[in-house]
Design a protein around this nucleic acid. Sequence first.
DNA 1: ACCCAGGAAATTC
DNA 2: GAATTTCATGGG
Length: 278
Amino acid sequence: MGILFENVTDLDLHETLLCGQCFRWKEQPDGGFRGVVRGRAVGVRTQGGRLILDGAQESDRGMWFDYFDLGLDYGAVKRQLSAIHPTLAEAARFAPGIRILRQEPFEALITFIISQNNHIKRIEGIVDRLCEHFGEPICGGEASPSREQFAFPTAGRLAALSPDDLMPIRAGFRHRYLIDAAQKIADGTVDLESLRTLPYDEARGELMKITGVGVKVADCVLLYGLHRLDGFPLDVWMKRAMAVLFDGLSPSVFGQYAGIAQQYIFHYSRMHPELFDN
DNA sequence: ACCCAGGAAATTC
DNA sequence: GAATTTCATGGG
């Protein structure tokens, strides 16, 4: 069981899955990755221009095509972005295989609430514990040599909990934010799917109805969960990068693919922390 | 002991 | 209103 995509370009799994946009893919000793998307546990690897999904069902081909954003020509995007600023061109050359995944909106919401004032390493640990404690165990799919795999928890399941029930995941002051988010999704106060087409500022405003969601987390949810590529999350790394590497330039110059530019710059900055020693 | 982490809420000025 | 403090937790 598996799915094969041929002639895949501009995709490097290491760059795409470990650049800080997602938190559930685990690198394997053979260089592949194992992870869970929309309740499907798979292994993923590349061979030249081939993308191989071990344990995936043929009926999910479209879902995986969308997840890795294979319908967008990232070569063309890079040419367009690289013409805007030489440092952006360099950042894109540094990790030319980054793609913006189409993650589940609710998962993006929860994981980026967890991300606030936190390290990526610790975010991954909290998300793992969240799934192990409150996600449905997955049967079938990719054989799991080490450990059972779990779907990301549903909003309904989390909405029924109280903040103290989250103690085992050790997310600290974020527990009440997570429960508030789950409740507002479960009861329809915030409709994530409607945010795909809403004007950007209105979509952001909807997300900010949730306690614990400010401008930055909202921008991350819109970019990584709803594929709003015009979003440009400004975290501590990006603020430093714009100030130091782009001389205070406004992100608006990056246009409709600003979100992709952001990911090149974020990854480039994180891999070159010495640029900001002062 | 002290500092910071893909921020945002609560408090204070 | 704008600036500062606090919020759990863990690693350096």
